[in-house]
Design a protein around this nucleic acid. Structure first.
Length: 272
DNA sequence: GAATACCTGAGC
DNA sequence: GCTCAGGTATTC
């Protein structure tokens, strides 16, 4: 968290705050959040217009005049908040400033895992944070997901969380789409049918699209770039619902650990 | 492919 | 005061 839907919501709400504005620099108060360094980040972006915005998996990037990019990874608790949202003063590690002296964008991150980076062009981004990353999960044809998963010998949940297989799925949406597809999180993709894997692909697409429509899941401190939380957590069927009834059959939701991650599933709907 | 490190705050 | 939360790089 934030995962693909939350990053997508940040992208969409951030756009009106930054598009067409000229950057002045980035003031960094915690050096490790700046890549490759606070100086290189600030000098790299300074003077450039923001001309576009993209997302690949959980990585957000602003396209700058001349082909350079300002990329942001929110990791666990990162937030991008415009000054208008009156962010809490604590845990703000960087301020993205604009030449028009208008409102800055603040980078806030309680756990300090997230980062902002300057990349000279798409190739540098592709060779860096996007190296080895699989196709974006949003809109991925179910047959493609099935083909990517089919040869995997490990647990299906581990494969979904592996960004090299498919980009953007984290713990919440892995549990949610496995529940909707009726697949046990410890199942091995290799042992599943083509039909089961394609159903998973369809459910993943539906889950991500619904989550985006509801502004994402706010399970810890997630807010979009307008400071607003999402509501998709209200419709979670498995994630963090240990002991509560499965919405499909009424059985109690179970919690186990898979791939080192807390995992929630219905023992009746998701038989091994 | 699994364990560990990185972090801080929430909840016991 | 302890455990847990979890995305990803690193290390076994």
């Amino acid at each position: 968290m934030p995962e693909l839907p939350e990053v997508e919501c940040v992208r969409r709400t951030l756009a009106p705050h930054v598009m067409g504005r000229r950057l002045a620099g980035v003031e960094v108060s915690l050096a490790k959040v700046a890549r490759p360094s606070p100086q290189a980040l600030s000098q790299g972006v300074a003077g450039r217009l923001v001309t576009g915005h993209r997302r690949h998996g959980k990585l957000l990037s602003l396209e700058l005049e001349g082909g350079a990019l300002l990329a942001v990874h929110l990791r666990m608790t990162g937030q991008l908040v415009p000054a208008a949202a009156r962010p809490e003063a604590k845990h703000i590690h960087a301020q993205v400033r604009f030449a028009d002296d208008g409102p800055s964008i603040w980078f806030r991150d309680v756990r300090q895992f997230g980062w902002l980076g300057y990349f000279a062009d798409q190739a540098e981004l592709a060779a860096g944070p996007l190296a080895g990353i699989g196709p974006d999960a949003l809109g991925l044809p179910p047959a493609d997901l099935a083909r990517l998963l089919a040869p995997k010998a490990g647990r299906i949940k581990a494969a979904l969380l592996d960004q090299r297989v498919v980009a953007g799925v984290g713990n919440i949406y892995a549990d949610e789409c496995l529940h909707r597809a009726g697949i046990h999180p410890e199942a091995r993709p290799r042992d599943l049918s083509q039909a089961q894997l394609e159903r998973l692909g369809r459910e993943l697409n539906l889950t991500l699209a619904e989550a985006i429509a509801r502004g994402g899941s706010s399970v810890s401190n997630f807010v979009d770039a307008d400071g607003r939380p999402g509501t998709f957590q209200e419709t979670h069927r498995a994630y963090k619902r240990t002991g509560q009834p499965c919405p499909a059959c009424g059985e109690g939701i179970c919690r186990i650990v898979v791939a080192g991650r807390s995992t929630h599933f219905c023992p009746a709907c998701q038989k091994p």
